[in-house]
Design a protein around this nucleic acid. Sequence first.
DNA 1: GTGGTCTAGACCACA
DNA 2: GTGGTCTAGACCACC
Lengths: 127, 127, 127, 127
Amino acid sequence: MTDTFQTNQPIYLQLVERIKKEIMRDELKPGDKLPSVRELAVQSGVNPNTVQRTYRELEHEKIAESRRGQGTFVTEDSTILTKMRESTKQIEIERFVIGMKEMGYREPEIIEGLQTFLQLSKRGDFE
Amino acid sequence: MTDTFQTNQPIYLQLVERIKKEIMRDELKPGDKLPSVRELAVQSGVNPNTVQRTYRELEHEKIAESRRGQGTFVTEDSTILTKMRESTKQIEIERFVIGMKEMGYREPEIIEGLQTFLQLSKRGDFE
Amino acid sequence: MTDTFQTNQPIYLQLVERIKKEIMRDELKPGDKLPSVRELAVQSGVNPNTVQRTYRELEHEKIAESRRGQGTFVTEDSTILTKMRESTKQIEIERFVIGMKEMGYREPEIIEGLQTFLQLSKRGDFE
Amino acid sequence: MTDTFQTNQPIYLQLVERIKKEIMRDELKPGDKLPSVRELAVQSGVNPNTVQRTYRELEHEKIAESRRGQGTFVTEDSTILTKMRESTKQIEIERFVIGMKEMGYREPEIIEGLQTFLQLSKRGDFE
DNA sequence: GTGGTCTAGACCACA
DNA sequence: GTGGTCTAGACCACC
């Protein structure tokens, strides 16, 4: 099954994001084995080098750990993972609020806009 | 005065964003003249080519128009500008919500997180 | 001029080390431009991708900064560089002492062995 | 009891180092029997193949010898062991000094840095 | 089987 | 010209 990727962001970063989110959603837990480089490459319709780079990036961020001859694993250190989830949340919120304010919206408008959107999306497109 | 730019996003896009936001905040109004390419280039400490590309992009989105020998101007057509403001808002909200949900947060948590952040930022760091 | 590399360590890391040491010896100063990827590749007789990886690693450690279309530069932030020099020194010393102690040497023997070596190397092989 | 290993160096080499150091500290003496492959494997939480390779390496360096059906033993030839101790010491010292010089430190600074470190570690963290 | 490195060569985006 | 990404394919080291 070949995945689809956006063109504006590097594939390896899109893979990083995807895996991070799987971790944050608890679909991947501390110590879990990630698919092998070659396996994910085939799965995603991507060159193994690209997956390597993905895993290397995750390792650099201490989110995963590669053991030669064994595989790549989600870190056992769950505090790193909860920190990641929390900081990603904060960054996401901050970016959103600052963006909205730079567009001239004030706080009540921001909250209202958000709630309106949530209402609409409830009976509609996605969960 | 040299501005600072992020390294991960093209400078010309950062300039586009900046100008769009000035328009959305009504600091630039329909028909207003933008600085000349050379002027903005010097001001921002950027290559004139980069500013050229910025203006080209704004033109392409019908937000600005160049008049030969006169300069570049914010479009007179204010409906385009209000549309832009509205759609940017929607996109921003949608991206935020989807991002949060992909991290496993549910709607009440999203709203709560946002309000907590607004509370904290009220007595604090930035406006 | 093709360089020679050891076989036990990846080339890209050997390049990283070399550049770090040039910085620590003040042969490269804050803000200096590094050779272009392609240039260093030719100089070192190595594939450009390998140099890319070198620069990417340096960037990850905040020691260098790449600007697309312009080049790769030693960071302007000299505190990072002095910190690097100091911590590398400490690590080197610690690794040495621990290694010697694990071999059963005691402190006076370590210092004596070092001084003997320095004496010998003074009238001899290298500076 | 599972040991911990660094990820950047092969496990079998880390085991080699560990055993060599036990010999150099006289905790293992000429003729002593090393643990069986299976025993060390379980002890260290490592694949038996990896221990095999460790012993093969030690044999190759003439530091240990395997006797079919009996086990693996530290060599009786104590001259090999003293030579190893001496050459390892020299290599360690040389690597240290060269490293420091490549960082731009001069001889007096090297000695001073070392002594400072020894002072600090005396009243402190480890023996 | 696993991950890690490297090359050759292509194409893109930016300044 | 600069850096950045990706592919194809090879070879190595480890478990």
